[in-house]
Design a protein around this nucleic acid. Structure first.
Lengths: 186, 186
DNA sequence: GCAATAACTGTGCCGCGTCCACTATGTGCC
DNA sequence: GGCACATAGTGGACGCGGCACAGTTATTGC
């Protein structure tokens, strides 16, 4: 209920023009109830996306140890993207123009992205036996997440005829993973 | 004055534990004066970094048209990093553990990063004659910026014996640029 | 019928960020 | 000297997000 009310109001009056009180009024609850379900106003933006990205860590855990690091990362990321088909586009992505213009939304976005990157970096460090905070692991992780973001934006912008998110991600990710794969082999 | 007072107080009481009013009191001005100089509390965090990153756009403009896209990007980024030597570490980087823990700082960080990425993406689109919002240009830009962030963190964490930021960036950036370079040639 | 747990509500508070009107403090011009 | 003008700073008020705390309804299990 809160989610629906929030999205409606965001469309009607914009993100900044919508107060938490208005959201809760439309949903028929009190203002405090909102904060029982969401840590903050901006978090309602990402609910349907969060469910998907949580799978990244699980996908990484499920990777067999005998396949290469790069292949494992690619597979885990694509697995995490699999639920997002042509008709299941997270609300946040179809309205990502809001994210660029509202600073508060950038905060919540970056928090989630760094979480994902941290998961990737930790996996890389563990696989390669690198020290904590290794630059190689971090740059691989950040670059990969960056490519995924580019893919998600392009996918959301592609309109109703868009295909699977995973195919976009595979394309955007390929140069990055190829580059790090070669770096590993030298 | 405001900057110094802010950094002192951030160290003494933490970022969240410091109010704008305390900053301005220590600086001997009124609270409103703070907002005459900084758009928000978090922006004081990045003042010495902003001066450096503004040079990226200029460096890109100054690139001769006859060198390749990837080489131009690498040169422009390294040029922008040049001012940061072993002793000139932006305050934000030496205390980047704050950024990870304070959501508000992530906001201001991401805003700056996306600005930089946007500059890179626009440059790439123009050079390759790509459409606005091209996924290739964006993924190159995001991945490159991601690698730079990893390099900056490693550099700041390297302690007083750190060398030039540029050498870290060159290392972190190499796999990414190599990967996109190969993608371009195929 | 009762206790315990969870979900929701009311109230008050703090701090950020914005707006607007007001007051120095120069600075250039006639 | 006198005047218009721009600039930097001040004071006061307000809206909103977010937090804390206490109180109040359900719902569940014994």
């Amino acid at each position: 209920m809160l989610e629906d009310a929030a999205f409606e109001l965001f469309l009607e009056k914009g993100y900044a023009g919508t107060t938490v009180e208005e959201i809760t009024q439309r949903a028929g609850v009190s203002r405090n109830t909102f904060f029982n379900y969401f840590p903050g106003k901006s978090d309602v933006f990402w609910v349907d996306l969060d469910a998907g990205v949580e799978t990244l860590a699980r996908s990484l855990d499920a990777q067999p140890v005998d396949i290469g690091l790069i292949a494992a990362i690619e597979d885990a990321i694509l697995t995490a993207c699999a639920p997002f088909g042509p008709s299941r586009v997270p609300w946040a992505l179809t309205h990502h123009e809001l994210i660029g213009s509202v600073r508060e939304l950038q905060s919540s976005a970056l928090g989630r992205l760094t979480d994902q990157a941290q998961v990737l970096a930790a996996f890389t460090e563990q696989r390669l036996g690198l020290a904590d905070g290794s630059m190689f692991a971090r740059s691989l992780a950040y670059a990969a997440i960056g490519a995924v973001v580019a893919a998600a934006q392009a996918w959301a912008a592609a309109g109703p005829s868009r295909g699977e998110l995973a195919s976009f991600v595979r394309l955007a990710l390929a140069p990055v993973l190829d580059g790090f794969d070669r770096a590993l082999k030298n």
